[in-house]
Design a protein around this nucleic acid. Structure first.
Lengths: 209, 209
DNA sequence: CGCTATTTTAAACGCCTGTTTAAATTCACA
DNA sequence: TGTGAATTTAAACAGGCGTTTAAAATAGCG
């Protein structure tokens, strides 16, 4: 395997586990059995390495999400919110073929990106992959047209928070759940449980304020 | 004002803004106009300072939450989930009297604690303030007794994610919302909007799986 | 093979981190 | 006012950080 990919794989796992700021290049390179300077040689800087780690996922995910959401938008029938959110399941789980535990790692990274690094990753994603957001918004609007744009803005961000936050600590939560309920559960199981939740949240009746 | 409090106030703001790992003791002490060594003199270590910052909020909040939730648990009438979640509003907003923008700072810190520092803060809160969790669980169970303990476990963590994540980026979100919809909104407004969302999420019908 | 370009390597750079030290200062109380 | 304790201070500590450098090793190709 190439040095570049060895670095990406090691960084991927470590970033997800300890955050971007919390992971040093020395940890990454020693985990990857690679010289320290290799990161700067192949990627230029730590910041560019972070972007590369995220891009590897987004380039795989983005077209799949786009086609799944477009299918909903172009259908004649009015979709349910449950269907809209379910459109994410298959593309997300497909990351596991592309890399072991790819789904959870990606969602963990997403969570890191929101809290670490003061929002530079949010900027990176919304500017580099804007279609995902616009298609998703369209699909939700089709499923729940009575929702005002502003109300939808908030509810989608609530949803983003639910997903990202849950997944970024999914490992710990699954551990707790397994101890307390000895119920075998994996990342797909968590997704199965979170979708009814966010669907109901977005579908909540409009409060009169 | 005492050196100890000057440090706590400065740390409070900086931790919320840049995270625990992202804030150095030198930033804190220079912001507080205090000698660098004062942190280790008064608190012992950075980790203990973090605990002190959180305790200051929790000691104020915990008894208020306890009595509000107990009121619901001991009432004869079955509460709605909306009422259960609303029990948090007043105690949280009361933090603003105790400190300017205390509500948002506290929730930001909570969000930081979940993602920074690999869960040591979660351990600290659940062991030091367990009553909040148990009372909350009881109240929810009273409002929605059909929900299994396991299902509730997950939905409460989803809710925690929604709240914490939203609030930890509430400043940025309020900015965006104000630009896009020129609708004046503050932290209380965000809370008003998130409660119907999480209520509906927790109240979602139990999926057959 | 020999040469060029690519990649790897060890070492050092300057800077920042949390913590500790010991001296200087301030404070409280007899 | 004098004395001992509490606090503040400047300085240094050891160690980690991302990045850079220049030499060494490797690879691809005429």
């Amino acid at each position: 395997m190439s040095t570049k990919n060895k670095i990406l794989d090691a960084a991927d796992v470590l970033f997800a586990d300890k955050g971007f700021n919390g992971t040093s290049l020395r940890e990454i390179t020693s985990q990857a059995n690679v010289n320290l300077a290799a990161v700067n040689y192949h990627f230029g800087s730590k910041k560019e390495l972070i972007k590369s780690v995220m891009s590897r996922y987004m380039d795989e995910l983005s077209p799949q999400l786009e086609s799944a959401l477009l299918l909903i938008c172009q259908a004649k029938r009015k979709p349910t919110l449950h269907e809209v959110f379910s459109a994410f399941i298959e593309p997300l789980l497909s990351l596991n073929e592309f890399k072991e535990n790819g789904t959870s790692t990606f969602l963990q990274l997403l969570g890191r990106g929101y809290t670490d690094s003061q929002g530079f990753l949010r900027w990176f994603l919304t500017t580099q992959y804007p279609d995902v957001f616009t298609n998703f918004t369209k699909a939700v609007k089709k499923a729940y047209p009575e929702l005002s744009t502003e109300e939808m803005f908030w509810r989608l961000h609530f949803t983003m928070g639910t997903i990202v936050f849950t997944m970024s600590s999914s490992e710990a939560l699954i551990d707790i759940a397994q101890n307390d309920f000895d119920n075998k559960l994996d990342i797909a199981g968590v997704i199965e449980r979170v979708i009814p939740y966010v669907s109901a949240g977005v579908a909540a009746p409009i409060s009169p304020l």
